[in-house]
Design a protein around this nucleic acid. Structure first.
Length: 505
RNA sequence: GGCGCGUUGACGGAACGGUUACGUGGAGCUCUGCAAAAGCUUAUAAAUGGGUUCGACUCCCAUACGUGCCUCCA
């Protein structure tokens, strides 16, 4: 059983090996908290949640960071335009801090509703301003930065591997002329590490720029300045500013996980700009690889066209809820596809996933209807051909081990469930079923056990009464009791030998 | 202009050079007190045209259509 992931670094499926035996450090680029996430955003977090779960299933101790971008993400990655947070604040008549707090909370609620495992660290960019400034200082001292009128920039031409990660062709790339050219930048691919607040403006989020970062000469004396306003020499104007988008990830990784991490995840759109820049910043300073494995999820389309916040066509979890679909229905929908394939969202597809999940829940509910004793379980184990829980659990984990093969895992589960549902209930080993459900829940996070409570004693009594009525061929009483159960949300199936209840919804 | 991806049955969606994916939905049959469920059966599946091969949905080339990145966006 080996874990394998497609690694953007090598462009192939690599066997996974962590730096420290049994431990994994992992960083996921998190949301920019200026608006509600759409379902495409959630798709990738669902896949990364499965990644965490399969690492845990392989007995790794996971140390994971998700960052919250609450400052500095401009409306354009080319370092033009407005800060998204400040823009959101204007839109809603709040401060940028209020906007960040509100949407951060919303994000966390979404994580919970989708059944995600919470990361060990949720790191807000604004909590790591000193660390970001410190990185900029290090870059400056190594000669990777320059200052122009609106900020401090990273000089990409000095990082010779810059184009390698994304296989960029920097020369021909800009031929489309869609990009605004900042004439002060040395290279088009150069990006802002620190932006200055424009003169006369007051931002909700801004910090004093340390004086030593402002001069154009590199200083080797790191101790010379502290990140306080006092560091600005008397008589000089304090220049306020804020971090560029990319530096936060490098700084947070360094602060919480170290110079080299095991796995870095994000969407494919991050490859050419954000992750390329992260690598440049971090590796320019540390001279070691930033991450050994880079996993990127493909995008989800909606009805065949791309989702874009700027186009405003993205459904949110709320929109699905209004049409009667739960977050876990959506989770099932996403797990049906592979994270590296482009998905296409339709409500038909979501309905199909919802039905599948519902059927799975009714299999899970069978565990309440089996009354095994330990002895009888042991007796059954010897000739129980209906379910081999150990083999099935193993097969599920192996499927996911292989580059997060969730569609294959679902197929295996369907096979196992279909043999369970074909079996007579007395032939199902209760503990085996529970173990299997547990494997499914722990690897796929579908909460089969949590979402399938036993029915009440009252309902059980009605079922028994109905069984008596049927035995006496009192069909009218039997049917009446069946209707009663139905109105309580319970469907009754009479098989040849037994009576099984299922959830209606 | 540069770089890339996709095209599988009603819908979603996998694997694999030679075997029924699987799920959801439709139709028919069996079973059944009725129903439900289940089982079985079923619908011209691989965009098109070439090539490689004993054999291709699976590899190669071309064409068509769609789509992504090179602004924002997972």
């Amino acid at each position: 059983m080996t874990l394998k992931f497609h690694n953007t670094l090598t462009n192939q499926v690599d066997e996974f090996a962590s730096q420290n035996n049994g431990k994994v450090t992992i960083y996921t680029c998190g949301p920019t908290v200026y608006d509600y996430p759409h379902i495409g955003n959630w798709a990738s977090y669902i896949y990364w949640d499965v990644l965490i779960r399969i690492l845990m299933a392989n007995d790794y101790e996971v140390n994971r960071v998700i960052n919250i971008t609450d400052v500095g993400h401009l409306t354009s990655d080319a370092d033009e335009g407005e800060d998204k947070l400040e823009k959101g604040a204007k839109r809603e008549g709040k401060t940028a801090w209020e906007i960040a707090a509100f949407y951060t909370e919303d994000f966390m609620n979404g994580m919970r509703s989708l059944g995600m495992i919470m990361p060990q660290h949720i790191a807000k960019a604004t909590d790591y301003i000193p660390q970001q400034l410190d990185m900029i200082r290090k870059l400056k001292n190594k000669g990777f930065t320059y200052r122009i009128s609106d900020g401090i920039y990273f000089e990409t031409s000095k990082f010779t591997r810059y184009a390698d990660f994304a296989h960029l062709k920097l020369g021909s790339q800009m031929a489309g002329a869609r990009v605004e050219f900042n004439p002060e930048k040395h290279n088009n691919s150069d990006f802002a590490l620190w932006k200055f607040t424009p003169t006369g403006e007051k931002r909700d989020m801004e910090w004093a720029t340390p004086a030593d970062l402002l001069d154009n000469n590199s200083r080797s004396d790191l101790e010379r300045s502290k990140i306080t306003e006092e560091s600005v020499p008397k008589g000089e104007q304090i220049v306020m500013g804020f971090p560029g988008w990319h530096i936060e990830c490098s700084a947070i990784i360094m602060a919480l996980l170290g110079e080299t991490i095991d796995i870095h995840t994000g969407g494919i759109d991050h490859i050419p700009v954000h992750h390329t820049n992260e690598i440049a910043q971090s590796e320019a300073i540390n001279n070691v690889r930033l991450s050994n494995y880079w996993l990127h999820s493909n995008h989800l389309k909606i009805n065949g066209s791309k989702i874009s916040k700027s186009l405003g066509n993205g459904y949110r979890l709320d929109d699905l809820a209004k049409k009667g679909f739960s977050p876990l229905d959506y989770r099932m929908f996403i797990l049906q596809g592979h994270y590296r394939n482009e998905g296409n969202f339709t409500f038909e597809g979501l309905q199909s996933a919802k039905n599948r999940l519902h059927n799975w829940r009714n299999i899970a509910a069978l565990r309440h209807q089996i009354h095994d004793t330990i002895q009888s379980d042991n007796a059954r184990n010897t000739n129980n051909k209906t379910i081999s829980p150990y083999a099935t659990s193993r097969a599920i984990i192996e499927a996911i081990d292989d580059d997060l093969g969730t569609p294959e895992a679902l197929r295996i589960i369907d096979e196992a469930f279909s043999s369970i549902s074909n079996a007579r209930i007395t032939n199902i080993n209760q503990q085996a079923l529970i173990n299997l459900l547990d494997t499914i829940d722990s690897t796929l996070g579908l909460q089969l056990i949590g979402s399938t409570p036993d029915i009440s004693d009252d309902l059980k009594r009605i079922i028994i009464e109905r069984n008596h009525a049927r035995a006496q061929k009192d069909w009218s009483k039997s049917d009446k009791l069946r209707d009663q159960l139905l109105s309580a949300g319970i469907i009754i199936r009479d098989t040849n030998s037994e009576v099984i209840w299922e959830y209606k919804d």
